[in-house]
Design a protein around this nucleic acid. Sequence first.
DNA 1: TCGTCTAGATTGACTAGACAATGTAGATGT
DNA 2: ACATCTACATTGTCTAGTCAATCTAGACGA
Lengths: 259, 259
Amino acid sequence: METARSAAMPAYQRIAAAYRGLIISGELRPDDRLPTEHEIADRFGVVRQTVRTGLGILVTEGLIVARRPHGYFVRRREHMVYRPQEKSRPRPATPEMDRFSQQIVAEGRTPHQAIEVSLVQAAPDLAQRLGIMAGQTVVARRRVRFINGEPTNINDSHFPIDLVKDSEIMSPAYLPRGTDQVLADLGYRQDRAIDEIFIRMPTPEEIHRLSLGPGTPVAAHYDTGYTAAGQPVQCTLNVLPGDRHKIVFERHWQGEPAG
Amino acid sequence: METARSAAMPAYQRIAAAYRGLIISGELRPDDRLPTEHEIADRFGVVRQTVRTGLGILVTEGLIVARRPHGYFVRRREHMVYRPQEKSRPRPATPEMDRFSQQIVAEGRTPHQAIEVSLVQAAPDLAQRLGIMAGQTVVARRRVRFINGEPTNINDSHFPIDLVKDSEIMSPAYLPRGTDQVLADLGYRQDRAIDEIFIRMPTPEEIHRLSLGPGTPVAAHYDTGYTAAGQPVQCTLNVLPGDRHKIVFERHWQGEPAG
DNA sequence: TCGTCTAGATTGACTAGACAATGTAGATGT
DNA sequence: ACATCTACATTGTCTAGTCAATCTAGACGA
């Protein structure tokens, strides 16, 4: 268990570096157990608290998890593919499922979602994207999507209330047509969207809704849809935990043809 | 921002929640100073170590930074816009600058980059994307991009050595044409790319190259380019610190025209 | 056999200190 | 006036414990 720069680094960092190395090199594999805090403390000649500080780093890096009273285990991660581009393709003709559910079923897994509709005051970030004043009322369709019973991502759609009041969008029921089609039928067909993705640590609310462990960063994906006239008509915030997703899209070259 | 569950929550979480609330609500603004650990300890009736645990959470969430011996400060963040789509547009006719530098100069800031070329053995993730065996040699053009003297992102391009040996790509000099054009001139014109974005905490190497503070997640953006024949010819890993970037792209609807 | 209870191992939270490291501001000396 | 030094406040690292919470495996009992 060599430690590189041993002398210069504080003990807790040496401990973190040692086990990080074992994990990255593959010597410790997913679901493998680390020694107990007491054992590590003895090996490195420090007290338990120092070990905790070191392992705490690896926990916040998302490399290990603590399971009391079993010990620390190397974390396993598998990524669901998230394709923002798919949203602007015509929806396949299976009106009883949205794209998310279709993809999950195609992967042989079981989707589930709970929709909740509420009226909220637009936070500044949302208001700016929807072109309204902060604090104005918007309709929020908030949902957490589950795969095999586990919360996987957040999908909160927001609409200016003037556009959708009295429409189906106000109903917490699942809309087979999709909200984009409902908006189109109301005369607000979208033909352009701007996607913005921020990388950050989750808020406590997000941690709660997604049952996130510590050390899990998220991507916050704002999808703002515009009509041909340039009016923003919806803004959806997708929150994707980093340990459960990869974002994938494809590009084809514009300009002179290949040859 | 009520603290809810106050009684049930451990003290260090109450402390974190309290100051998190002050920051999110805007009561504490960027660059504002928090009370000292001792003061907070007195206010909450705990010892300093408990305060440190609580503030440590906010540090790893990226909300505050500690500056010794001045105290804790609310972190300021501004995002550089990262547009993966731009890469597949024809390059504007300013051969002395790449797209990154062009964008930065247009924003009135000063770009800088240091390129380093080396031969490395392909790690499994890279090998898979380039369609070669893990451990085979690839050419790596590694660079850290700076804005106003501060490291901002990592851009490491990788090429199978057979394709580029003896070409300009082996030179650590800046290539005005761009590596894509060099590849095209060698007969490997790309016409398609797959983008994959992972959200995770940075490795120690990335922390070092980018001088990242604690609590900064990154987006790891793999850009793999293919020829018309479907052969992967380059794989670039961009590492974007979450506190300095937002990823932006735009979609236009396919399917029936708007109306 | 089957359920229940208990002891034990392990992580979680916290106390009460000590000393080190690091900038700053003020004191000091020339 | 200027440079240098020093005291100090603050965070960083670490020790040495205590008690709580949680889950398991094995003992025990009906």
